[in-house]
Structures are given as structure tokens and as C-alpha cells.
């Protein structure tokens, strides 16, 4: 549905994005993660036909964003980061104006349906200028959904919403994403974890990682880390475990009775370790694998030192 190849954009001498290549399938929610200024908005603006790329190609729903811009724009719903709206229009009039620009049949009905979808039906006659930030965000979302687009591009859709609204909007995006393609940008990692099928981490205009949120967590760690908790003193066990094959290091954990194990392999060692603990006469309370949070991965990937930053999945 979205296919991007070698996309590059320069603003004067500054390179905003550098040779981006990625794809998004139908029915997929693709998360675009990265610090501010990483090039997320620029990429989205190119995909929506707002601005041309310096080089590279991008097709959306089978149409080239440069050569067949109008066809692309007909099939894309876009929520810009700033949620630009006409503040002196009513919600209904504004959406009807957008519906007319998109040549929708029965614009009135379509606007009502969409307002119901985003839960704004009771505000239809209110002026946009009088709405709260969260409400405006939903008007923007309604505008993007108005024509039931094949591809939905949302630039930080949940920013500025209160926690209740965030949950609502996330559910809405997930529902929409079942049949359509959704590309959304965010810098809230838990959000990406919750609603995205796949995540693309972008830093300084380059993709530094691309995978499902789950795989990202596993893949980056290399070997597994385990957390072990026993009753009583850990010192004798530490010594015993340190001698075990396949364990790189064993050190006391943060809390009393905890041991952190860094394994040398990716293989499953938990049964073996459990036996060793029990046969040594220790009381085993807990043994679990600890994953890196997406936060850790994100920080590790987008940190300035380029040795880490360039490692691709």
C-alpha cells in the first residue's frame, strides 16, 4: 500500500531524510518512531503530496506521489501534526467543505456518520474555535476519515489529549487499521507498542530499526538476561552459578535475594538453572526473563554515538 524507496529530502543544505526505504501492507498499522526533528513529518508530507522529495520514489495505493499526486491525495486521509482547522467555521460546515472538496456523494450523511465515529455528533453545530484541544484533534481525525481512505497518515494523533481520549483514539486507530493501512508517527513508545503491528525507528533521517515491537525487544538484546530471586543469602548461589556453563556473569540484583544473570547464549537455560538452584538447597521464588523496554531500545538506537545508531535490524 505504501512503498518508499531511497526517499531523500533536502532543505537547503540540511538533509532532513536520507534514502529512506520501507513498505506498509494493507491492514497494517505501521508506527513511525523517532525523536523530534528525525524526519517523521517530512516523510509524511511527501507521502501525502504536500511537498516533493529531492530524490527517490514513493508510491501510495499504487500511485506515484509525485507524478500522480491527485490520485494519491484522493486515497489518503491525513492528519497533520498541527491539526490545522478553520476556527471560524462550525464543525459540520468545515467537514462538509472537506467532503465537497473530495466530491463525496451525500456529504451531509457522510459528515454525520463520521462525526458519530469520532464521538462528536453533539458538537456538530459548535464553532471549531471554541473546542478544546482534544476535540479539535478529533475533528482533524474526522476530516482524515471522511472519505474512508485506503491509507491513513496520522502525525502524532494522540498528542495533547487527556488519558481517556488517548485510549479512545488508539482504539479508533486500531479499528480503522484492520482493513486499511495506517502510518502513524509518535514519540510515545508505549503507544507504538500498543497499536502498531510494526515499528520503524528513525533517527536523523535514517531508519535505524524496523520490526514488530516484540521482535525489536528480543532482537536487540542478543543473549538473554534472567532475573532470579531466592529466599535468604545469595552469596553462595552466586558462586555456584558463576561456574555453570553458558552463564556469562552473575551478580547481585537491586533487591535483597535477587540475582541478575547475563547468559552467553540465546538458548533456553531456565530449566537447567532452576535445577541447579533447587539441588543446591536454595528456595527458588522467581525466575524470569527480563526484556529491554522499547524505551531502552529507542534510547540505545537514537543515541548520538553512531556505532550503535547504524546497526540495522
Amino acid at each position: 500500500m505504501i512503498r518508499v524507496e531511497g526517499l531523500t529530502k533536502d532543505y537547503g543544505s540540511r538533509r532532513a531524510i536520507n534514502a529512506l526505504t520501507f513498505e506498509a501492507q494493507q491492514g497494517e498499522v505501521l508506527g513511525f518512531l523517532g525523536p523530534n526533528g528525525a524526519g517523521k513529518t517530512t516523510t509524511m508530507r511527501i507521502l501525502t503530496g504536500y511537498m516533493p522529495a529531492t530524490s527517490g520514489t514513493a508510491t501510495v495505493a499504487g500511485y506515484d506521489v509525485m507524478d500522480e499526486s491527485l490520485e494519491v491525495r484522493r486515497r489518503v486521509g491525513y492528519l497533520p501534526e498541527t491539526v490545522p482547522l478553520y476556527t471560524d467555521m462550525t464543525v459540520f460546515d468545515y467537514l462538509k467543505f472537506m467532503a465537497n472538496l473530495r466530491h463525496l456523494p451525500d456529504p451531509d450523511d457522510r459528515v454525520d456518520e463520521t462525526l458519530e465515529l469520532v464521538g462528536l455528533l453533539d458538537r456538530a453545530e459548535g464553532y471549531i474555535g471554541k473546542l478544546s484541544k482534544g476535540m479539535r484533534q478529533r475533528v482533524g481525525l474526522a476530516q482524515a476519515l471522511l472519505h474512508r481512505p485506503e491509507v491513513l497518515i496520522l502525525d502524532e494523533p494522540t498528542i495533547g489529549l487527556d488519558p481517556g481520549q488517548v485510549v479512545e483514539v488508539r482504539n479508533l486507530i486500531r479499528d480503522v487499521g484492520r482493513e486499511r493501512t495506517v502510518l502513524l508517527s509518535t514519540h510515545i513508545l508505549s503507544e507504538a507498542q500498543q497499536i502498531c503491528d510494526r515499528v520503524l525507528i528513525i533517527n536523523k533521517g535514517e531508519i535505524v530499526a524496523e520490526d514488530t515491537p516484540g521482535n525489536l525487544q528480543l532482537g536487540l538484546e542478543g543473549a538473554a538476561r534472567l532475573l532470579l530471586r531466592i529466599k535468604g543469602d545469595t552469596a553462595p548461589l552466586l558462586e555456584k552459578l558463576g561456574k555453570l556453563d553458558g552463564i556469562q556473569s552473575a551478580k547481585p540484583g537491586a533487591a535483597l535475594g535477587e540475582i541478575e544473570l547475563q547468559l552467553a547464549t540465546k538458548e533456553e537455560m531456565r530449566p537447567e538453572i532452576a535445577r541447579a538452584v533447587v539441588s543446591g538447597g536454595f528456595d527458588l521464588l522467581e525466575l524470569r526473563q527480563v526484556g529491554m523496554s522499547l524505551e531502552d531500545i529507542f534510547l540505545q538506537l537514537t543515541r548520538d554515538n553512531s556505532a550503535n545508531g547504524k546497526s540495522k535490524e
Binding site: R45, T48, Y50, P84, Y86
Partner: peptide, 12 residues
């Protein structure tokens, strides 16, 4: 107002 972004990404 930034609404230009809206108009320039509409099929127009």
C-alpha cells in the same frame, strides 16, 4: 494558520 497543508493535500 497552517490550513494550507490541508488544502495542498486535498485532491485539488
Amino acid at each position: 494558520m497552517g490550513t494550507m497543508e490541508l488544502l495542498l493535500t486535498a485532491p485539488l
